[in-house]
């Protein structure tokens, strides 16, 4: 079963996401995509990568409680959680085996390739179970 959903991202949300990920370079940055039920991404929430410092060049982790707090914040603003974004520093924007293992079904995963501090290709993935 494959999902066919369309997502749109507002220029301001895209800019915020790119700037966040370029700022995190060479570490991997991550955050949450929020917006309307119709798939319009209107806001991005920056998240502190909770993976330990030495591993964070190639790994990200979001603390479940930080996620819990963030969900509430998004709801207050009338947003739904549409998915997550993270960067692959100096790597292609392809889903990795580690990504796949932890992917939540039906959530949009946006991966941005950040090379030498510059944001390159951006791809989105959705997993069906």
């Amino acid at each position: 079963m494959t999902s066919h959903r369309q997502y749109r991202i507002t220029p301001s949300a895209l800019k915020k996401m790119k700037e966040h990920l370029m700022g995190e370079y060479p570490k991997e940055g991550c955050g949450v995509l929020a917006g309307g039920e119709d798939g319009s991404i209107e806001e991005v929430f920056l998240i502190k990568n909770s993976a330990d410092r030495e591993r964070s060049a190639g790994y990200y982790e979001i603390d479940p409680f930080e996620m819990y707090e963030l969900e509430k914040k998004a709801e207050e603003k009338g947003y739904v959680i549409l998915g997550f974004y993270h960067s692959h520093p100096d790597c292609e924007a392809m889903i990795s085996s580690e990504d796949n293992e932890y992917m939540l079904p039906q959530m949009l995963y946006v991966i941005a390739s950040v090379n030498n501090g510059k944001c390159g290709e951006i791809r989105g993935y959705i997993k069906d179970l």
Binding site: E28, C30, A51, A57, G58, Y59, Y60, E61, I62, P64, F65, M67, Y68, F84, H86, S87, H88, P89, D90, C91, E92, M94, S96, S97, E98, D99, Y102, M103, L104, Y109
Partner: peptide
């Protein structure tokens, strides 16, 4: 009881030989 997601992932394995 809270049912929460563990959100994690990583860049593909880096080669020790650069691009």
């Amino acid at each position: 009881v809270l049912i929460l997601p563990a959100i994690a992932g990583g860049a593909p394995n880096d080669s020790i030989i650069n691009e």
